[in-house]
Simulated scan of single mutants.
Amino acid sequence: MVVREDILNRKGARKVSEIPKEVFTLLNQGKIESANLTEWLAINHICLLENVLPSIGLEHKLEFIIAELRKNEVETGMKAIRMTGALLDIAIIEESNSTREDVTAKCSNHVSDSVRCWAAFMNKNPNDSLTNKLQYILPFAADHHFGVREIAWMSIREDLSQDIDKSVGLLVDWAKSEDENIRRFSVESIRPRGVWTKHIDILKQEPQKVLPILSLLKSDSSKYVQDSVGNWLNDASKTQSEWVIDLCKQWEKQSDTKATAKIIKKAKRTIMKTC
């Protein structure tokens, strides 16, 4: 099917009620990507499952997955993505290795960003090492779509929080990547407070544990990374304000760049409000 250029290049509706019927249908059929957060949150994942699973050879699992979603009254949004991915992971356990690999690959490379989001939650083998889990999530962290990138860090954040020292050691290499999306992931995935996620208490008390990553990115050229580093430090400032103030003073001396100045401004925004 060839999708019209005007649909592919749309900016996206500001309200769910403003999403054109044709666009909404294509989104729920898994034939186009969402253009913004409004569309991303509006997608009905039960409709999407009904359209996608037969095309990847999992129509025999459709009833089980949809029943679970309806039982939990989940059809849209982040909870639907998380649950669908987890249910798909369960659904393919009994399949052959080749079938599991084929299904995972089809979801990971699907045209629909929502299906790729499901795939980010389809690697929950408790026996996998953190290194292997990060390797699996790498292409999602580098995805061109904002939604997939957000789900990427959310899907592995709990694993990363279990051993912060080890996680930081592994993510240092990500902070050195040429890809700004990967560099951003190295910080965003372990924010002390984060967005829509549980806090990482040890980092609220000991933010210095992440200095090996933060220091590498203190003058990053990417605004995407700058915002993430600034937000990370702003999180930390809510419990360790003096530490953040001292670090910002050090960075001002070490790096007289516009990038560092922008990071520091964002890092100190909560501190400035309380002065």
Rank of each mutant, 00 (worst) to 15 (best):
V210D: 04
I213S: 06
W174R: 12
S189Y: 03
N127L: 12
I190A: 01
S222R: 06
A142M: 10
P139M: 06
Q135W: 08
F185K: 02
K218D: 01
Q205L: 14
K124S: 11
A175F: 01
L130N: 04
V115P: 08
C107F: 02
A152N: 00
V210I: 13
L170R: 06
Q208R: 12
F146G: 00
I202R: 09
D143R: 03
N123P: 07
E180W: 08
H110N: 11
H199L: 05
M122N: 09
T197D: 10
L138V: 13
F146K: 05
D143Y: 05
E150G: 02
N181I: 00
L214I: 05
F140H: 12
F146D: 03
L130D: 04
I202A: 08
K209R: 15
I164Q: 08
S221W: 10
I164E: 00
R193C: 00
L170I: 11
T197S: 14
S108F: 10
N97F: 11
H144V: 15
L138I: 14
D102L: 12
A142V: 00
S189F: 11
S167G: 05
K124E: 14
S189V: 09
D128W: 14
L138C: 12
H144R: 13
E180P: 14
S98W: 09
F121G: 00
V148Y: 05
A105W: 14
D102I: 02
W118A: 06
G194P: 08
K176W: 00
R100S: 05
F140Y: 10
I156T: 06
A119L: 05
K218Q: 05
Q208W: 14
W153Q: 00
K204E: 10
A141Y: 00
L138D: 14
F140G: 03
H145A: 01
G169D: 04
D102A: 13
L134Y: 01
T131K: 15
S167F: 09
S186Q: 07
Y136N: 10
I190V: 13
E206K: 15
F146V: 00
L171D: 11
P192V: 03
H145M: 05
V187G: 01
F121E: 11
R193H: 09
V148A: 02
N123I: 02
N97V: 06
K176C: 13
L211K: 10
S155M: 08
I164M: 10
P207V: 00
S189D: 07
S155Y: 09
Q162L: 13
T197K: 09
K106P: 05
S112Y: 03
T104Q: 15
A142R: 12
S112D: 02
N125H: 11
M154V: 13
E150I: 03
S129G: 14
C117E: 10
Q135C: 13
Q135A: 15
D159V: 06
C107Y: 04
E188H: 03
E180Y: 13
S161W: 09
P139D: 04
D143I: 06
S167R: 01
H199C: 01
V111H: 09
S129V: 06
V103N: 14
L130M: 12
